[in-house]
Nucleic acid binder design. Sequence first.
DNA 1: AAAGATGGCAACCGCCTTAGG
DNA 2: TCCTAAGGCGGTTGCCATCTT
Length: 251
Amino acid sequence: MMGRSPCCDKTKVKRGCWSPEEDAILKDYLHKHGTGGNWIALPQKAGLKRCGKSCRLRWLNYLRPDIKHGAFTEEEENTIFNLYKILGSRWSVIASHLPGRTDNDVKNHWNTKLKKKLLTELSCSPITCTAATSATTASARKTATFQASTNSLAPHVLPTYSTSYPQTTTDHSSAIFSNDPNNSPTPRMVCKDSGEHLNQNIIPVDEYFGVEGLIPVDEYSNEVLSGLWSPMEAIEVESKADFAQMFPFSF
DNA sequence: AAAGATGGCAACCGCCTTAGG
DNA sequence: TCCTAAGGCGGTTGCCATCTT
């Protein structure tokens, strides 16, 4: 065995940018037949000289009717910021919270715009300045600045994921503040704050949204049922203030 | 005005996961 | 239970447009 076999013969498929004609053929085919559950076989059936993966990517990232083209709004950018602080580069998860945006979109926007914005905002923190100013060349300064920025974020807001989360416990503080990599982190939260939602007993706050993303308890239940959340992944805190103390970057 | 640098983004690569036989 | 093919995903590349010198 000489490694993984490619999904298609690269010498027999067209690569690079898609022409309007190819777009039309793909759209038309998918409109009439759907994917048929098999992207690899699709290009041949549709009469396209493209790799199946390329067709899938083109459809998902560009041709899909529900794709939102154009500039990101401030609200979308804030969402990306908040999610990135908690999740890191899990672009598909981040994109799933931005209707009409693809993971590729979000990733590109982060790499070209938001990363720089983050660097600018953090450029005056002591740790960043120290690392950046001690570098001798411009490129080294750039690298040092980014590394210092991400390092300064990491301990609080970029938890290491684990398959076994601590269970809900009455000892909130010890469970929540554990950042020891050998000790499971606590990425899920259920906040009992009632200040803004007096008719709700429990307000779930997940690591995707931070406090900005408070969602009704019935919606939380739906997400549990749909498998997005596990009840055992929830950690309770007593108030929004407690949450703010633990995750200051969410505010 | 021209050349080089930089930015923006579509597309590809290859690894990991998942589903089905 | 294992194996294989397809899907999904994050990282990276390459090309074109725009900006800067």
